[in-house]
Write a protein that binds this DNA or RNA. Structure first.
Length: 456
DNA sequence: CGACGGGACGC
DNA sequence: CGACGGGACGC
C-alpha cells in the first residue's frame, strides 16, 4: 500500500453538479453517489462501512463535520451484526454537503466508504436489487447498464469477476431505485438475448445476502486468520493475553465500548486467539516490547518504514481537504488558512529513530475515565488544523473514539491534539505510519500520550 | 469492489 | 525556537 494512496477521498465527486459516472474498460462495478436528490438535503446514507464499526463510532466521525440530528447504523435484527451501512441526518444542509465532500471515498480500515444523499424514504426502495446471470464474459458494465437503464434509475451495478484471473464470471447485480422498475426489467429482460449476443440472460430478484451466505460463520475465523498473517499479537511478545485482534473489524463485540473505569479489559477479544483474563496494566507495554513488536511487524511486512524509501507527504491531501472546506466555508467563516505547501521529505529511518526516542519511557496511555481508548499525542499541527482532517488521517488505521484539538482564544490550533483510538494495535499502527510524515510542511509527530507532564 | 432502506410520527 | 486536555469525580 502506498502512503500516497492513504488519504485520497474521491474529491472529484464533490456534488455541486450531477456526477457523471465514468467507466474504465475493465470496471465491473458502479456506485456513483446520489447528487440530484430533490429533497432531503440533510439525510445521508453511508455504505461500505467496516464490519466492526459501531453506531457511536459512525456518529463520532460524522459529528466532526457538524451537528447531526440522528445516526442509525443498520444491523441484523437477530445477530446485531452491522450490515455495513447506515444513515446520518444532519441538522444543516451545508454540513451534509461537506460530509459528502469530505468523507465519500474515505478509506476506513479495509473499506472505502460511500457517502451520498439518502433517497427519501419509500416503500418501493426495498428489494429492488436484481441478479443477472448469463452475461457474456466480454460484456462491460457500461453495456450491461445500457440494457437495464431504460427501465429506471440504476443505483448500483456490478459484474462479478474471478478473484484470480480478474475475468468476468458472467453474473452480476443491478439495483434499481424502485421495485416496480426492477419488476418490469425482469418481465422484459429475463430470458431475452441482448442485441449482439447469442445467449439468453437470466434476470431475477437478488437474494438477501444474509440468508444465502454459507460463509457467514466462517467469516470471523477467516478474518482472524487474515489478521494473524499481518499482525503479530502482543501475546507473542509479552506472554500476555492478546489485545483485541487487529484492524479490519470482526465480530459484533469487536468495537464494543470499554466500560471499565480502570484499565483495559479484553472483553472484545477474539475467542480464537485469546482468553479473557485479568486486566492489562499499561506498563505492560514496555519500550522494548514496542520495539520488538515493531521489528516483528516489519518482518510481517506491515511496518511501512521497513519498505518505504521516503516518508509520505500529506501536503496534497491537505490542500485538497482545505479546498473542500473553503468551497463551502462561507457560512462557517473563520477560515484563515494559508497552506504552506512545501514539500519537505524526511528520511524514513530518521523518522523511525525519532519515533523510538519519543517512545522511550512512554507506555500506551489509557484515558482516565469516560473516554475509552488509547490516546495518541499529535504534535506539529498547523494552526488551521480541523477535526475532520485528523479524522481522515487516523481513521484509516482503525476506530477513533475521540479527537481533541487544542485551540487558543482565537480558535487557532495550538499545534497539538489528542486522538483516542479504541484498539491498541490500530493506534500503534497509526503512530508508526503517521509519525514523521509531512503535513502542511511540518513533520508530524505522533506518540502515545504520556501519563505524566512532558517536562516532569 | 463490500450488505442501499431504519425508524417513526400511536395502536 | 517550542512539546501532553478537559470534565467531573467529591473531601
Amino acid at each position: 500500500m502506498t502512503m500516497e494512496a492513504l488519504l485520497t477521498p474521491n474529491n472529484n465527486n464533490v456534488p455541486t453538479s450531477p456526477v457523471q459516472t465514468t467507466y474504465t474498460s475493465t470496471q465491473r462495478y458502479c456506485s456513483a453517489p446520489n447528487v440530484d436528490i430533490g429533497e432531503s438535503k440533510t439525510n445521508l446514507i453511508i455504505n461500505y462501512l467496516p464490519q466492526g464499526m459501531t453506531q457511536e463510532e459512525v456518529r463520532s466521525l460524522f459529528t466532526s463535520i457538524g451537528e447531526i440530528e440522528s445516526c442509525k447504523l443498520v444491523r441484523d435484527k437477530v445477530t446485531g451484526q452491522s450490515l455495513g451501512y447506515g444513515f446520518v441526518n444532519y441538522v444543516r444542509e451545508e454540513d451534509a454537503l461537506r460530509a459528502v465532500s469530505s468523507f465519500n471515498g474515505l478509506r476506513l480500515q479495509n473499506k472505502t466508504i460511500k457517502v451520498s444523499y439518502a433517497r427519501p424514504s419509500n416503500d418501493q426502495i426495498k428489494g429492488s436489487n436484481l441478479y443477472v446471470s448469463g452475461i457474456p464474459k466480454s460484456m462491460t458494465l457500461h453495456e450491461l447498464e445500457s440494457i437495464f437503464r431504460p427501465f429506471g434509475q440504476i443505483i448500483t451495478s456490478r459484474i462479478l469477476s474471478d478473484n484470480v484471473t480478474g475475468l468476468s464470471k458472467g453474473v452480476g447485480f443491478v439495483r434499481f431505485d424502485k421495485k416496480d422498475e426492477a419488476d418490469v426489467a425482469i418481465k422484459t429482460l429475463n430470458g431475452s438475448i441482448p442485441s449482439g449476443c447469442s445467449e439468453q440472460i437470466t434476470v431475477k430478484f437478488a437474494n438477501n445476502p444474509a440468508s444465502n451466505n454459507p460463509k457467514g460463520l466462517l467469516s470471523d475465523l477467516e478474518a482472524v486468520q487474515q489478521a494473524a498473517t499481518t499482525l503479530v499479537p502482543l501475546s507473542t511478545i509479552l506472554g500476555a493475553p492478546t489485545l483485541r485482534a487487529t484492524a479490519g473489524g470482526i465480530g459484533p463485540m469487536h468495537h464494543a465500548p470499554i466500560t471499565s473505569k480502570y484499565r483495559y479489559s479484553p472483553m472484545g477479544a477474539i475467542t480464537a486467539v485469546s482468553q479473557p483474563t485479568a486486566t492489562l496494566p499499561a506498563d505492560y507495554l514496555t519500550t522494548s516490547a514496542l520495539l520488538q513488536m515493531s521489528q516483528l511487524n516489519a518482518l510481517a511486512g506491515l511496518n511501512p518504514f521497513a519498505t518505504a524509501t521516503a516518508v509520505p507527504d500529506f501536503t496534497a491531501s491537505l490542500i485538497a481537504h482545505q479546498q473542500q472546506q473553503h468551497a463551502v466555508a462561507q457560512q462557517h467563516a473563520a477560515q484563515t488558512a494559508s497552506p504552506p505547501a512545501t514539500n519537505g521529505q524526511v528520511a524514513g529511518l530518521a523518522a523511525h529513530a525519532q519515533l523510538s526516542a519519543l517512545s522511550a519511557s512512554v507506555a500506551a496511555t489509557l484515558p482516565p475515565s469516560d473516554t475509552a481508548g488509547y490516546c495518541l499525542f499529535v504534535y506539529n499541527l498547523s494552526s488551521d488544523t480541523d477535526d475532520t482532517l485528523l479524522w481522515q488521517l487516523f481513521s484509516q488505521f482503525g476506530a477513533i473514539v475521540n479527537v481533541k484539538i487544542l485551540r487558543d482564544l482565537t480558535q487557532q490550533c495550538k499545534g497539538y491534539a489528542f486522538v483516542s483510538m479504541s484498539n491498541y494495535t490500530e493506534a500503534y499502527n497509526a503512530m508508526l505510519s503517521l509519525n514523521g510524515t509531512n503535513l502542511a510542511g511540518k513533520t508530524l509527530q505522533v506518540v502515545f500520550k504520556s501519563s505524566t507532564p512532558y517536562r516532569a
